[in-house]
Amino acid sequence: MAANSTASGSLAGTLPLPRHRASDSLWVEALLRFRRHRLAMFGALALAVIVVAVVAGPFVYRVPINEIDFKAKLQGPSLAHPLGTDDLGQDLLARVLYGGRISLAVGVAAMLIAISVGTVVGAVSGYGSGTTDHVLMRITDLFLSLPQLPLLLLIVCLFRDMLKKLLGPEAGIFILIVAVIGGLRWMPVARLVRAQFLSIREKEFVEAARGLGVSPLRQVIRHILPNAVGPVIVAGSLDVATAIIAESSLSFLGLGFPPDIPTWGRILFDAKDNLDFAPHWAIFPGTAIFLTVLSINYIGDGLRDALDPRKVIG
């Protein structure tokens, strides 16, 4: 029944019916479904709170991020420092708020790059097959097997100064980081999407659409992709976490933001050696990463359930 409804739904979409209204109601329905998805709503709310906090937070909470005060180093949460201080006595709340901007932006942007590149490569490869598939998959293999560290060092060496000159230090580094993380994370997504495509393109409803002369692009976008979206959403939400952590390891190659600019991953890394003496230092950035990833995941779940008419909402 469920599969049929999808098939017939898509059939309906290709028949000369008043198309706008059909898709309008589809979107409205999806939105309604999303709104009824309690966890998705929770995720959206939590993410909104985090975004507002990191965007507006530094304007409200005006403690500087780099005020060194050795007298107050490694202190736990207190009134003066709500989240405590690090080993230079810098205020952690200010650093977590400020760092969140970079981490969130990097995480989401890199995830989007990885997901979109991966989906396009995987879709073309999985639908096209033959030579296209071979070429694309060998490129994927190449990227999978490239040793990342030397590659990153090479990229720093080749592009850092150029991008800095072109776009200014901050924007340049941001683009570089996002491109590097996204550019090295799309391969699993491509493989996953391709695998799904190989299977789905042989399913009856796609056959049916093909038989009806639906254009390949439309087949892919309307019929195959929505059914292959599950692993993409999971990979997407996991990639946000990976990107946030990866950003911190990039700064250890001299590729990330300058060392005096805090990011969540970096705060977490700096905190690790003092974990047994000053756990608060690690707990807050760790929680921030966790909440972000969790809420993005719930939004993803909600989106998938909302876009897929088969799904029953629990």
């Binding site: 996991l238 976490a241 977490l268 890394f269 760790g286 966790f290």
Partner: peptide, 11 residues
């Protein structure tokens, strides 16, 4: 799963 994934292995 998400706690496990948000915390890198170094941690």
């Amino acid at each position: 799963a998400y706690v496990g994934f948000s915390l890198p292995t170094f941690f």
